[in-house]
């Protein structure tokens, strides 16, 4: 038992270390200069010097947050609509729309969106939003259509209206599955947001692109590592919330 207890602490410690490291790096990148210096050539700067890493990280997160909130709202609303008796006929249509959003490459969305909405954050948000819809929609659909039949029956039998059943029973019961979709969507968005910098959105992609343009491996690496660390931590955090909600309902934890 004691050994298991020790083992259980290891991942938490690693996560904590990663958080500390990440905060230290984005707020005080100068401390890490000696580590990255060997990756640069002919005395090029080892730490990104065209903006603050902290600001870029926060802007990156903001972009992902806005896109995910929008995608979640639309995808869950759509899933609710097509699982109501009145909306069933829209299911195939919604499925195709959401699938197109996923199959259309974000780079292409950016190229198409820039003439319409201009450079900057907007085309990036559109690309991330479209790209993030599918996992959330599919999971919400699965969650809402695989509810235990006798629980739904009991909710009807108790005299809940359609709205009360949705809010009090169906959504809470599908919450863990919907959260799983959001988690996937967030992680995809975190990585995809970097390409937004090709159309002048202020994300961590700026650091990577600057590194590619000036042939500076240190820039590419620090931009990539920050994004990776964010993805790992957010993935972990959302998984923990998912497990908590599932466990409360006595569901198997994955």
């Amino acid at each position: 038992m004691k050994e298991a207890g020790v083992k259980a602490w290891v991942p938490s410690l690693l996560r904590l270390a990663l958080v500390v490291l990440l905060i230290a790096f984005v707020s005080n990148p100068g401390w890490f200069e000696p580590l990255l210096k060997p990756l640069t050539e002919s005395n090029a700067p080892a730490i990104y010097n065209q903006g603050s890493l902290l600001t870029l990280t926060l802007l990156h997160l903001r972009t992902v947050l806005i896109a995910t909130v929008a995608a979640t709202t639309v995808a869950v609303a759509l899933a609710i609509l097509v699982t109501r008796p009145a909306g069933v006929e829209f299911l195939p249509l919604s499925r195709s729309l959401v699938n197109i959003g996923q199959t259309f490459p974000p780079v292409a969305v950016l190229a198409l969106a820039v003439p319409a909405v201009g450079f900057g954050e907007k085309p990036t948000l559109i690309a991330l939003f479209l790209y993030g819809l599918l996992p959330i929609f599919e999971n919400a659909l699965t969650g809402l259509t695989t509810l235990p039949a006798n629980v739904v029956e009991a909710a009807r039998g108790a005299g809940m209206t359609g709205w009360q059943r949705l809010v009090k029973v169906e959504l809470p019961l599908s919450a863990p599955i919907i959260l799983g979709g959001i988690r996937l969507s967030v992680v995809i968005s975190l990585a995809t947001a970097t390409i937004g910098s090709t159309v002048a959105a202020r994300t961590l992609g700026e650091v990577i692109i600057a590194g590619l343009l000036s042939n500076n491996l240190a820039f590419v690496l620090q931009g990539g590592l920050i994004v990776a660390a964010l993805a790992v931590l957010i993935y972990d955090g959302l998984s923990a919330i998912e497990r908590y909600t599932a466990r409360r309902m006595g569901q198997e934890t994955a």
Partner: peptide, 12 residues
């Protein structure tokens, strides 16, 4: 009142 087989309790 309405009671069914397998009780249908709300798990959450």
């Amino acid at each position: 009142g309405y009671a069914i087989q397998g009780h249908g309790l709300f798990p959450h």
